[in-house]
Design a protein around this nucleic acid. Structure first.
Lengths: 407, 407
DNA sequence: GATTTTTTTCTCGACAGTCGAGAAATTTAG
DNA sequence: CTAAATTTCTCGACTGTCGAGAAAAAAATC
C-alpha cells in the first residue's frame, strides 16, 4: 500500500539531503550546499538554521579569504553532536572503534578472542565489557553514543540486530539489541561483513561513475565465503543485501561443510575445503575448525610449482565459486564482481576455475563474462562501510527525532 | 545520490494515492477516500477537484440514499479517460485485449501463431497488425490509447521494452518501443509473463494479509520454466523481478538445453526434457522444438502406474527445480512458492523431487521447507498482473503529466 | 582613502500543500 | 415542521519551497 505524503516529510527528506552532502563533501558554504542539493538558497538557509539551532552543525570560524567578495562561512558537522561505536567481529579478534559525528576516528583497540568454544553467552559479555572499556577510555557521556554498529560474518536478520547463523557460533542466535539494552540507550545495528564491503565499494563506484553506476557484488574469500550485493534503486538510493552465498548449494550430495550440510559452496572454496582437497582427505570428513593461513600458503606454493593435486584443489574451489556466481547472476543482472578477503592472495590459482565455472552458464555465454576485479584492504572497506551506513542512520534519526532546538 | 523533495511532489504522490485507492476499492465517497488514504477531508476535496477538472474522475450520478444524512456522492474513474491494450504473447498464439481506464475488458481476440520460424521481423509486423485490428474494431481514437502492455516468456530488459532473449526467438532481440513508435504515441511496456503472475499473486496476498505480506515467488512450469519474485519494499510498494531462472545452471556439463548451453534447469525440468529423460534419449540430443502435451500426459499416466523410467523423469525434473529454488532462496529470503502453469497437472509426480531438491541445502535445513502451493489459472493471473501494473503506470503518468484541466 | 565590483548570506513576499474546524447541504426520525 | 445525523465543502492557520533582491564584506580600482 502506498502511503501518504506531507510537507513535513519534504522538510525531513531535504534536511537529510543537506546532512548527506555535508558528509560527502566536507565543510561547505551555503552556496555550495545549494549547488549540490539543487535546493534554493532560501531553503538552505532555513534548513541550516534549524540544524544549527539543534546543535547538529556549526558555522566554521572565519577562514582565510580565498577570493574576493564576502568571505564564505563554512558549515560543518559538530563533532560533539554524537558518537558512534563500531564493533567488527572477526574469527580471531573483536575490534572496537570510537568515531565522532564527523566520521573521525577517536580511539580504537582490538581484543583477541579465545579459541576455546566460549559460547554465545560469554562472547556477548565480552562485547559488553569491550564497549564499557572504549567508553571509559574516552571522556564521553554514555548518552552521547547514538549508535552501535556491529558487523560479523554470517547470516543476519535484515530488520533486527540478530545474528541468525555464523561460522563461529553456528545456530546459537545472538540478539545484540536485547543484550545491550540494559546499559545502552543507543540504537544497535548489525550487518554482515561482506555487505558492508559491497556498500563501501558501491559508494566509491558511484562517486566515480555517478549515475552510470548500477550494481556491484563483493565476494569475500577466506575461511568462509561471503557475498554482498549493492544495487541502485529507482529513487537514487542504494539497496544492499548479503545472501547466504557460502552455503548455497554447489553440488547435490557433495562435500561435507562446516554447517553440517553437504555440497555447500564453502565446502569447496573455503580455506579448509581447499586443504581437504589438496590432502586428498575424503570429502565427507568433518572439516578442521581453524586452518592456519601458512598451511594454505604452502599448498599454494606447491601448486605454483606445478604440483597437480594442489593446483586441482584451487581449481576446484574456483569452479564452485564460478558456478555459484553464475547462478547469482542468473537471478540478478550482470554486474562487476569485486573479490576481497585473505583469499585474494591465491587469485592467480583460482582465476581459471572461476572463469570456467562462470562460463558454463547460459547467462554468461549470452552476455559475456562479468568484470572481475581484485580489491585488497578488505578491513578498510569494512570500516568504510560501517561509517557510510551508520552515519547515514544517525543523520536520519536526528532529523526524524525532530529538530526542536538543542538544549 | 538522494534527490530533493518539494511540495509539488507531495501533491503528485497523494494524487496517485487517491487514484490507486479508487482503483482498488471501486467508486468511493469523499469520506471513504479520506479514511483509506488517511488524508484529511480538505485535501481529498482539493485533489478530487483537480482530477475532476482534468476529466480523470467523475461524480457518480444519483444513487439510492443508503442512510440518513446528506447522501454520498460517489467518485469513480471516467472510463473514457483512456484505454489500454494488453498483448499476451504465448508460444502458440497472441492474445489482444482492449481495456478501459476503469479496468473493464472491452474487446478481446487471439491470433494463432504459425509454427514455422517466421522470424522476429515478421512477428513484429503481426503484432502491429493485431494492434490495428483491435483499434479499428472499437470506435476509439488512437490518441486515447495511453499504454500498450506486452508480456512474453523470456528475458526482458528491465528499463526498456526490449525482449532480450526468448524461447521462441532466441537472441533475436525485439525492441517493441522502436517497432511501434511510428504509429503509436502510447507508451509501451514489456514484462516477463511470470513476473506478472508473481505481481498478481503478491497483490492478492497483500489484500489478504495486509502488512504481514513480505515476499513471494511464482514458478511457472511448462515447455520452459519461469520464475517471478515479488517483495515489499520499505516504502510499502512492491518490487518485482523475473530472473533468468530456467537457464540458471543446474549441473555443470549436464543435459543440453534449447538455449544451446548445457546443464540449465530447463534442460531437466522443461517438458521436452522430461520427455527426453523418459525415453532415455541421450542428454546431449538436441531437444524437440515443440512437445504436444498429450505426449507428456501419456508419460505421466505410465509414471502413475509405477513405470520406473517415467517416474524417474519427473523426479529428476523435480530435483532440478528443488535445487534451483534452494539456490534462489539462499540468495533471497525464505518465501512461499506458488507453482503455476500447465506443468501443475504433474505436480503429484514432481513434488517429491522438488522437496528433496530443496532439502539438500543448508538454508532449508535451517529454516525449514518453504510453503509450496499450487495455483491454477495462470492465464487469469497474467492478465490480472497486466492490469495491476499497467493501470498503475497510467495513473502515475496522468498525474505526472500534470492536471492542467482537460479540454 | 573613497568608490566600485564581486561574491556570499540573509530576508521577504509569493505560491503550493496539508490540516482541523466549522459551515452548508440534505435526508431521516420524531 | 423541527431536530438529529451524515456528508461535503470552505476558510484560516501552518509549514514548506522558491526567486528576487537587500545586506554584508572583502578585493579591485580610481
Amino acid at each position: 500500500m502506498l502511503t501518504k505524503s506531507s510537507t513535513e516529510l519534504v522538510r525531513q527528506r531535504n534536511s537529510v539531503l543537506v546532512l548527506a552532502t555535508l558528509r560527502r563533501h566536507g565543510p561547505l558554504a551555503h552556496t555550495e550546499i545549494s549547488d549540490f542539493t539543487r535546493l534554493s538558497s532560501a531553503t538552505v538557509s532555513a534548513i541550516t538554521a534549524d540544524l544549527e539551532k539543534a546543535q547538529v552543525i556549526e558555522k566554521s570560524e572565519q577562514q582565510a579569504a580565498s577570493g574576493r567578495g564576502r568571505p564564505r562561512v563554512l558549515l560543518r558537522q559538530r563533532r560533539d553532536c554524537g558518537y558512534l561505536i563500531v564493533v567488527i567481529i572477526s574469527s580471531d579478534a573483536v575490534q572496537y572503534s570510537l568515531v565522532d559525528y564527523s566520521g573521525k576516528l577517536i580511539d580504537r583497540f582490538s581484543e583477541e578472542r579465545s579459541h576455546d568454544p566460549d559460547g554465545a553467552g560469554r562472547f556477548v559479555n565480552g562485547v559488553r565489557a569491550g564497549l564499557e572499556r572504549i567508553l571509559s577510555r574516552s571522556r564521553i557521556e554514555r548518552e552521547k553514543v547514538l549508535l552501535i554498529s556491529i558487523s560479523s560474518k554470517g547470516l543476519v536478520n535484515s530488520s533486527e540486530p540478530v545474528l541468525v547463523w555464523s561460522p563461529i557460533f553456528g545456530s546459537d542466535q545472538i540478539d545484540f539489541e536485547l543484550a545491550l539494552k540494559p546499559e545502552w540507550k543507543a540504537k544497535v545495528i548489525l550487518d554482515n561483513e561482506t555487505l558492508l564491503v559491497a556498500a563501501a565499494l558501491g559508494a566509491r563506484e558511484e562517486n566515480v561513475k555517478g549515475a552510470d553506476f548500477r550494481s556491484l557484488a563483493a565476494l569475500s574469500l577466506g575461511h568462509s565465503i561471503g557475498l554482498g550485493i549493492v544495487r541502485r534503486t529507482t529513487h537514487g538510493g542504494h539497496e544492499v543485501s548479503a545472501p547466504n552465498f557460502g552455503h548455497m548449494l554447489h553440488m547435490a550430495n557433495g562435500g561435507l561443510c562446516r554447517c553440517g550440510t553437504r555440497g555447500c559452496i564453502e565446502a569447496y572454496a573455503g580455506f579448509y575445503a581447499i586443504l581437504r582437497t589438496a590432502f586428498e582427505v575424503p570429502l565427507d570428513t568433518i572439516p578442521a575448525k581453524f586452518v592456519p593461513v601458512a598451511e594454505l600458503d604452502k599448498i599454494a606454493a606447491r601448486a605454483r610449482q606445478g604440483h597437480r593435486i594442489s593446483g586441482f584443489a584451487f581449481r576446484q574451489a574456483g569452479l564452485a565459486l564460478g558456478n555459484g556466481l553464475s547462478r547469482m547472476l542468473s537471478l540478478t543482472e550482470r554486474m562487476p564482481i569485486a573479490i576481497t578477503g585473505p583469499g585474494t592472495r591465491y587469485y592467480d590459482l583460482l582465476r581459471q576455475g572461476i572463469e570456467e565455472g562462470l562460463g558454463q552458464s547460459h547467462m554468461v555465454r549470452r552476455e559475456g563474462m562479468p568484470e572481475l576485479r581484485v580489491v585488497a584492504d578488505e578491513q578498510i572497506l569494512v570500516f568504510e562501510g560501517h561509517l557510510n551506513r551508520a552515519l547515514a542512520v544517525i543523520d536520519e534519526d536526528i532529523v526524524v527525532a525532530g529538530l526542536q532546538g538543542g538544549d
